[in-house]
Design a protein around this nucleic acid. Structure first.
Lengths: 221, 221, 221, 221
DNA sequence: CATGAATGAGCATTCATTCAT
DNA sequence: AATGAATGAATGCTCATTCAT
């Protein structure tokens, strides 16, 4: 759906377009985001956008894929290794997600926008499949945790996977806004806010959340 | 923002308009929901809508207020009494929320739509204040729980309140769709699906979630 | 497909819009005819057009229906009475068609434009059904002519109906342009040309055509 | 207007391009036919088309010329010899036209599309001159027929030429569709339909038409 | 208080054509 | 000669909102 034409573009131009598109889609819901705005700000012709992407949906989807890639990069960076310890793994996943949120608040916002309905079937399917994958990952993790004796055999794997998904995805994001005493718009437009949150703060939050989860899920010895 | 004119309307007409508006706003994102659609289906004049509500935002906000009222009614019905026992209270709150979700899937959907950006500042503020109130309620609950010795003094009250908010609001909703093996559209348009979920199922889910939370939050004796 | 709104318009305004629309659709093929042009020239808002007609197709179809009505009026005027004499009837039909062509050259042109493909299925179906009706009318006429002994029993009714349809519809129109030594554009934009063709000329042409047909079809005594 | 560049192309490539262009222009009206479609399907660069043809009009005109050539080939094949007998000549011309129609339904369709307005002056002039030539040919034929005593001296040569032109061009085409009980789209996309019409059927139709014309035009002995 | 026509900015999208490489 | 990215005017259409009746 992205066209080769776009990928052939000089890196600088490509990135400027993406940056502006991200700003547009992060600052308003999908239907209000305007291609005209984007092309005007990017200084390119309206028609060019259609040489780069099949249509509005395709551009949006490209941004979502980009967000997914970027998040994956953070997970790689965190050296998540699902094979060892359940709670350790969970902590790493949380940390990675958290860091991604702070490093790319606008991309995170786009994902959130996409979650709650753009009115476009294609996008919805894409998000659903993403959510499914995430849930399956958590389910797999929980099952292994149960097999390894770390996670109580009593926990409902599917239910918990869903809760984890929501908690990790957005529960923590809400908390950030609250402790920073900032509203969403400020958070998105003033990058220094996100950047000034120290690694310590992040780790503390994650630790507390993990402790909470550990008690809730851990097998009683 | 609702005008007196609307409230003076014969009950029947008022309810028909609201019902149709709910369907419209539940089935598509705010920006795609169309007043024209609503007035056509309701068989009233376009201009009349503007006698009833200041503008599109005001109508939407009215629906949100209605959802809030309705949810409150479910909470009342559940005889939530914050004074007694923390986990019991939490369970009642969850049950009430759950039942509201199943009784009014479309209203729930509207609330979800409103959460993630209508692009309208007024709506956003309204939602933020709602979220704040909910969080403050949970914080209050948690603090009393700590004072009463039920909740561990170690839990971060604010963080936990945020997590509870997300878990109760949407985490369970996702789970429902998953176990029913239904997609959102089906769930919204086929009321029998929601109605056929037995009280037992609901109670089981809530129990599992509560057990999970109890372990995570309970003071170790 | 025309909306009541349009029909409620003050006659003057309605007619101005139609006149301008006819000019637009007569002067270029359907796809090149532009709603923007029409509304600009008519001095109405773009949106208003959509209060009057469902879409471009509906406007065009309305013009086609108008042409049909107008032609019918000419047929009525000619006191066509299919019951009497075949060749007399045919002559009257021809005369009526001819007079319609000269009185409404632009409407005739719109019909011709519609014949050869607008690329719109709805329009195509409409035209096909029109053609079918015309052919059936001629077939009926021919059959009665055969029963009455005027038309040779040897003539292939269906084939002849098709030929008559084409001859009456457009064959004569071509001839007009040729004898007037005028091109289509002049003919459409200078109404005086069509108006200056005398009744005598018309009758002569029709007579010659009828004589030609009479010989071709008449039963040999 | 065709550029030498195109003519220098390897035959195979040239023919593929033409074939695809014919499909495009036969399946939709001139203004809706899209060069982008053509080049994509042909696997050539957009710019190349402009090395081959001056513009869209030039390509279309080239197809029209090709149709003319092809039709001429059918006339040659039919060994039309205007010198001998009027009605025999007419029959041969009709047969040739008929066979061309069935052998190249798409080319025929392009010609029909071109007749009723592409909105391009150049094309219109081209078609007009074609029509003029055809009419002049028929006039010449009729005059000789009159001189030879076959055709009644009373027939209006110019009028009849126009009628013949329409009858031979499209009147018969309509009839085909009708007896085949096929619509235009089927006829264009399913070549077997045209091919399955037997020589006998063709000859019968032509004979009937000729008999009709013979009666209408023949000098009474 | 109801009506519903009028408005016009705004939108996504298409397309023939140009031109630098 | 071939390419294919760039262009931007133009198009049909939608919609919240206004306002005269």
């Amino acid at each position: 759906m992205v066209k080769q034409t776009f990928l052939n573009l000089p890196k600088e131009k490509r990135e400027r377009i993406i940056e502006i598109a991200i700003e547009e889609f992060a600052s308003k819901p999908y239907t209000k985001a305007s291609l005209s705005n984007i092309v005007n700000r990017a200084g390119i012709a309206k028609g060019s956008m259609y040489q780069y992407f099949e249509d509005k949906r395709a551009l949006f989807r490209y941004l979502l894929e980009l967000a997914a890639q970027e998040k994956l990069a953070f997970l790689k960076e965190a050296e998540v290794n699902s094979d060892v310890n359940f709670f350790e793994t969970l902590e790493k996943v949380m940390l990675a997600g958290f860091r991604f949120n702070l490093a790319h608040p606008q991309l995170s916002r786009i994902v959130a926008n996409a979650m709650e309905g753009t009115g476009e079937a294609v996008i919805q399917e894409f998000m659903m499949s993403g959510r499914k994958m995430a849930c399956e990952y958590f389910m797999e993790l929980l099952k292994r945790g149960q097999e390894g004796g770390e996670v109580s055999p009593d926990v409902n794997v599917r239910l918990t996977a869903n809760l984890l998904n929501r908690i990790l995805g957005e529960g923590l994001a809400d908390y950030i806004l609250e402790i920073m005493e900032v509203d969403l718009h400020e958070f998105l437009t003033k990058p220094e806010i996100a950047q000034n949150i120290s690694e310590d703060t992040i780790k503390n939050i994650v630790n507390e959340a993990i402790r909470f989860l550990r008690n809730g899920l851990e097998a009683q010895s």
